[in-house]
Amino acid sequence: MSGTDGVVASGRAAAPADALRLEGVHKSFGRLEVLRGIDLAVAEHEVVCLIGSSGSGKSTLLRCVNLLEPIDAGRIHVLGTEITGRGVDVDSVRRRIGIVFQSFNLFPHMTVLRNVTLAPRKVLGLPAAEADARCEELLVRFGLADKRDWFPDRLSGGQQQRVAIVRALAMQPELLLLDEITSALDPELVSEVLDVIRELAAGGMTMVLATHEMGFAREIASRVCFLDGGLVLEQGSPAQIFADPQEERTRQFLKRIVDAGRL
């Protein structure tokens, strides 16, 4: 079904350092089969970029890893623990995995600081003072200190997205999922968000990101995965995927991107 990818994935599976491992993950919406046996392993500190045309299932894949969508078949392991088995505590899994969405999804009725401290306080049970201290440190680090008492609707898109990233980081996740986090931004705001991701990558954060920013993927990814037809059709280093793709479908996809002037 997924041929060589499966072998590669299970070969890597033996290593205990896998932060994330997917085995034969299937997901359908009604009669539409979006994921048709995804095999993927992500080592700790790796930055994996998912590329593929619109509708290829990048968002669905990330949502499945975070258990926002139940999968139909297959297995997902996070840091050695299977999270798709029966009786798994969904909330405790999500505590360890951060996700940032294309549309920010900040809580509009809370200030920036409350957005960021909500989960540390309610989920981890930190006292308010301690949560505030932890979160303000993060806000300072990402240049948002002066925005702590603002409500989201007064922030620019770039600021909102950085708050969303800080909100995910406040839970000190072991794995960060980023779903096209710059797609909803004006071009001049993209770089301030990408800077944040660069810094996180340099700090060793394990990340899986779906992106249409090929230039950024080439710069930051340890590995690039091309999704097509519900499978990881091809994966490799950015140099290999972008300069010397093996699959015809990958070549077509990249050619379309180049023609659109996005690479």
Binding site: N66, L68, D91, S92, R94, R95, I97, G98, I99, F101, S103, N105, L106, F107, L118, A119, K122, V123, R167, A168, M171
Partner: peptide, 21 residues
């Protein structure tokens, strides 16, 4: 629904998401 998804993805339980978000 994306509001609930955001809350749940941070580890809030169903009832916490309901109550706070």
């Amino acid at each position: 629904p994306s509001q609930d998804a955001a809350a749940r993805s941070l580890g809030l339980s169903r009832s916490q998401s309901m109550r706070h978000v």
